[in-house]
């Protein structure tokens, strides 16, 4: 889409903050301020969402190591990538719950790998306005 979505959303957010919010008070001012902040998050997420989900799904699938979770017909729509991501996350929870109570070296290695994957996921999903 042209104009670029990231640029347009960021511009609209600034316009709301600088031109509209000062004209409002109370509840409406709060609502429009939050809407501007959400546009900023959309601007941030628009460009990276698909790449992040593809990388994360590949990360989780490799970790789960099962033919059953292979993505035979990759669909790059965000909704499809998110659905696959949620399926993989469900399987990851089960695997994590299993290995974390075992003492064998293979289980410990897998647990370490799971934490690393979750850490990569969280870092990739960070938004600029987050407090932490």
């Amino acid at each position: 889409m042209k104009p670029d979505v990231t640029r347009a959303a960021g511009f609209l957010a600034n316009m709301l903050r600088e031109d509209i919010v000062p004209e409002l008070t109370g509840f409406r001012a709060g609502n429009v301020s939050m809407t501007a902040a959400m546009l900023d998050m959309i601007a941030e997420e628009w460009d990276r969402a698909a790449a992040r989900l593809v990388a994360e799904n590949a990360d989780f699938a490799a970790l789960l190591g099962n033919d059953a979770v292979k993505d035979a017909t990759p669909d790059l729509r965000i909704s499809a990538l998110t659905a696959r991501n949620e399926d993989l996350r469900t399987r990851l929870i089960a695997l994590h719950a299993d290995v974390e109570t075992r003492d064998d070296p293979q289980a410990k290695d897998t647990e370490t790998t799971i934490w690393a994957a979750l850490r990569r996921s969280v870092e990739a999903r960070r938004i600029a306005s987050a407090n932490f």
Binding site: M34, R126, A130, F132
Partner: peptide, 20 residues
């Protein structure tokens, strides 16, 4: 409500980081 969508977008990943 706008605040519900805003809070969810703004806080969920930060909460995950805090737990890590």
């Amino acid at each position: 409500a706008v605040i519900h969508a805003y809070a969810a977008w703004w806080l969920r990943n930060a909460q995950d980081r805090a737990m890590l």
